[in-house]
């Protein structure tokens, strides 16, 4: 064996040696993972695709809307920006029928129908345009349950998602939101946001993980129904199979997970 050959063999065997080591390493890592590391809370509410059904007939007074919106905004420390309406942050809000369902305009439509307030929020689309355009995966659809999430740690504030969302569901922090919150009103268990990131409804992922229903659903007195769209026995599926429902702008192919009952 000459020097050259020796080096060759030594090189090859060391590659195998290293390979073996890493293989052992991953195996070891996997074994350990079963004991330490992250896992889901056994009490967490689970679904294949979460959906929200809004029973518009049960929203009769302004108070009915306010209860849900306040519950949401309080739970998530959503600032109440009034000095410049252009910089508003909204996770859940109301608009009138003709604006929630644009394109239905009809001059003979009863004024009270046109002006009927409706609850609006992120639709948690099955085919979300915002997720498609995000350059950092800061907004993404959770594979486990279809929630369209926001990772505020990662958002670079390019606002492409706001241009892409056909529902106007996203808000951008044009300034530091903290001064718009009273300390005593803040939910100490949930963060606020910083300036320069986009935010929106997250279907209360933090509450679902603890086995709680979304804050708005809890506050709605049964006007909001939350459940698994892919479970044929779920309450949402039962209602959808019985009653007349609409989704916002279905022609765009985004497949919203928020339904409106009339």
């Amino acid at each position: 064996m000459d020097r050259r050959e020796f080096i060759k063999i030594a090189g090859i065997s060391s590659i195998f040696g290293l390979g073996g080591l890493t293989a052992f390493g991953t195996l070891k890592g996997k074994l350990e993972a079963s004991q330490t590391g992250p896992s889901q809370n056994p009490q967490a509410l689970k679904a294949k695709r979460w959906a929200l059904v809004i029973d518009t007939t049960k929203f009769k007074t302004e108070e009915d809307f306010k209860r849900c919106i306040d519950a949401c905004h309080k739970a998530h420390n959503v600032p109440h920006i009034t000095d410049n309406i252009k910089h508003e942050i909204k996770w859940m809000w109301t608009d009138t029928y003709e604006h929630v369902f644009p394109g239905v305009e009809d001059e003979y439509l009863a004024e009270k129908v046109k002006e009927m307030p409706m609850l609006v929020l992120c639709n948690h689309c099955d085919n979300p345009a915002c997720v498609r355009v995000c350059p950092t995966k800061a907004t993404f659809k959770r594979k486990s349950d279809g929630i369209v999430m926001m990772d505020m740690h990662r958002c670079i504030g390019c606002r492409f998602c706001m241009a892409a969302c056909p529902y106007g569901a996203r808000s951008f922090n044009y300034k530091d939101p903290r001064p718009y919150m009273k300390e005593e009103d803040m939910n100490p268990e949930f963060p606020t946001r910083m300036k320069g990131v986009v935010e929106k409804c997250t279907f209360c992922y933090e509450r679902l993980a603890k086995g709680l229903m979304p804050a708005c659903v809890e506050a709605s007195n049964g006007a909001l129904i939350f459940g698994d769209l892919e479970d044929p026995n779920s309450e949402v599926r039962k209602i959808l199979s019985e009653r007349h429902s609409y989704r916002r702008r279905p022609e765009l192919g985004t497949r919203p997970s928020v339904y409106y009952l009339f």
Partner: peptide, 8 residues
């Protein structure tokens, strides 16, 4: 134009 330029 970025909201969080340091995260570019």
């Amino acid at each position: 134009d970025m909201g969080q330029p340091l995260r570019v």
